[in-house]
């Protein structure tokens, strides 16, 4: 009855096996579902419900509690701009305005071509590198309004398949919360945090 392909089901069972109790796998499985379809669909939630023996209503209840499960249309690139206190003090709102203007997408909306969504977010733990921005949850710190625009143009023109934090920091970032050490090759594909065990991360060659 499963709607997911066998290899995905295998992944799902591997995720469930990480926990003493099935239900604990709900959040990772929701990420997997969102990764598969680009957003969290009703079918995705039904599938997760089957896997952990919950009703779809229970799964929806959990998913809707958290901000990172996107039940509405969301772009290939989710641009999140922090406007919490530290970023606000250093111009986060101007960065948001610049990015809205550059992409033509208002806060909380997705562009018709489905390429990009823009949202303001609460503190993402980059206060030392304010103002901070995330693309598919990969971080760029010390972003000026002008660099925010450049970042968007880079995304829309280059259409990188895998989004890499270090690359973006290199090109568009400034002040950092702390030194980041070496360049990582693992990044995000689509609006889901890139994490190996969940099958949502990808290496670039």
């Amino acid at each position: 009855m499963s709607r997911w392909p066998p290899e995905t089901m295998e992944r799902a069972h591997a995720i469930i096996a990480r926990y003493p109790e099935k239900r604990s796998a709900v959040m990772p499985l929701l990420y997997l579902a969102q990764h598969l379809e680009g957003r969290l669909t009703d079918d995705g939630m039904r599938q997760v419900a089957d896997l952990v023996d919950l009703t779809p209503a229970q799964v929806q209840s959990v998913a809707s509690f958290y901000t990172m499960y996107k039940r509405d249309e969301v772009g290939t690139y989710l641009v999140s701009v922090c406007t919490s206190i530290s970023c606000m003090l250093l111009g986060g709102e101007d960065v948001l305005a610049a990015i809205e203007d550059e992409t033509g997408v208002r806060d909380g909306e997705t562009r018709a071509d489905g390429l990009v969504s823009v949202e303001h977010v609460e503190c993402i733990g980059a206060c030392g590198g304010a103002p901070a921005v995330q693309v598919n949850y990969e971080l760029v710190e010390g972003v000026t309004p002008e660099n925010g625009r450049k970042l968007c143009r880079w995304l829309l023109d280059g259409r990188p398949r895998v989004v890499l934090g270090d690359e973006m920091q290199e090109l568009f970032g400034g002040q950092r919360s702390f030194d980041w050490g070496p360049v990582e090759r693992e990044g995000a594909v689509g609006p889901v945090p890139a994490f190996g065990p969940y099958g949502t991360a990808e290496e670039i060659r």
């Binding site: 958290y66 990172m68 977010v121 993402i124 733990g125 995330q134 949850y137 990969e138 971080l139 934090g165 990582e184 693992e186 995000a188 945090p193 890139a194 994490f195 190996g196 065990p197 991360a201």
Partner: peptide, 13 residues
């Protein structure tokens, strides 16, 4: 680890 910290999570994993 908070969901907005994929990179730290990858390092810890």
């Amino acid at each position: 680890i908070r969901g907005e910290y994929p990179r730290p999570a990858r390092r810890v994993q």
